[in-house]
Design a protein around this nucleic acid. Sequence first.
DNA 1: TTAGGGTTAG
Length: 551
Amino acid sequence: MFPRAPPYHIVVSRHQRHLLFPLLSPRRCPFSGASGSGPDPTDLWIAKLVSTVFHLSPSPAIAADRIAPIRHLLSPSVALAALRRHADPLSALAFFELSCSAFGITHSAAAFRFVICSLCQSGFHDDALKVFYQMANEGHGIEESFLEFLAVSCIEAGKLDLAVGLLGRASEFGCWYQSYTLNNLLSLLVGRNLVNDAVLFLRQHLHSQFLTPDTCSFNIVIKGLCRLGDIDAAFNFSDQMRSFGCSPDMVTHNTLIDGLCRAKQLDRAQELLQRIQLDGSSLPNVVTYTSVISGYCKMGKMEEALGVFSEMTGAGIRPSRVTYNVLIDGYGKVGDMLSAVSVYERMLASGCPPDVVTFTSLIDGYCRSGWLDDAMKLWNEMSQRELKPNAYTYAVAINSFCRMNRLNEARKLLKELKGRRDVMPHAFIYNPVIDGLCKCGRVDEANVVVLEMEERRCKPDKFTYTILIIGHCMKGRMAEAIALFQKMVSSGCTPDSITVNSLVSFLLKAGMPNEINKIMLTASERYIGLDKPCQEIPSSLGKSMGISVAM
DNA sequence: TTAGGGTTAG
């Protein structure tokens, strides 16, 4: 934490002169700048001296000894001026702490804010919050705007736990904060699948006088609950909205309808749609209808989907690109490519340009029907329309080539993907190729593909490892299979019962009981905390060894 | 800051 510095000399050499005038990086924090008429020139001179001595000392303790003779010159305003001379926030923090502990300085609110802002801007939010809580404990008034700045900084840095803790204590500091900040936090929590944390936070603070949730706050949490499949909880929240002065709006209704559709409760979704229509308070829009159409498409009920589509157009609502894409994908999934193409043509005729999702769905449809060559014609047509395939498109095409045992064409696409720096590679794109190669006994080539994915910082997942372990076992390369299992565990990828069962059964056939023991021991250590229950497998081994394996 | 679309393999 303490900055590296050369030994202390009274006379500073030419090459050290810059240390007298450390340049501060631009401060974006509105609370860290100087205010008022600025520091006294004498204070500035002392601050310069003190900060230089501090910088040149090899440790805070030595700095304390060296500054001691002039400690009587130190004041809160000198300390603030000295703090401003620290370019490194951790160095500023070290000086801040030293001036409290060694020289008894009671820092001003401005000094606290300066250190907190510096730490936040460099990503040291944990330290920033410790200083903030010290600031509050020392009785400094907390401005609402400062609390919000700190919360937003934590949120933007992804330190949601810190933001939750800070905003959760806002009432302690007498601070009210805007729904915008709350919604930012809720949105990020939901986006990271921390729906329960978002729900808990909103519930705990609904009655707080320092927080005013708005319709958007509820909508965010309702969407999270719908994505979890907890439709009843989502409806409960929507029922509660009015008692907090918020009215459900079109977004609320659409979120609930989409939730019902995802939960395959299409009848309830249709009922709600009709209720909204009868109610007249908000008319269903293209998003509402598209959600219902999507729900039917996902269930393969294309007649019903088309019925809702007709109802929508009959009501004078123009289909969006998403609406067309949903229908095209639905027809492709049920193998009705004639209808999929018909919707595509209608889309073009209506002046709605297709996008990469349209093409991915069409390519997927052709692939599922076994018409790979038609699919690849579309692949080429995409570039004519200046559309680039993305990770989804590659996944669809590569998977299909592998299913048809056209591994070389799949590898050609992987090679093309290698040149696409704008596409983030995912294990599910590589896995079918690795699987196909292993099944053909081309294990060495499979290992090369794994190296390629790792070169692109794409970590193998449990499917990759299991495919490889089985592939190596099939070739009798047991030592390599065991090494892969060990690499899997040490890289933090938790094996599941399929991985362990596969390896153990091969080891059993190979007559390697000692290795089985080791694998099972590792597995039992790793399985602590797994959600799914344990099951006795394999039968012969389980009986003889009394070991259970998680499923 | 909130609503609808495409990948899921061992």
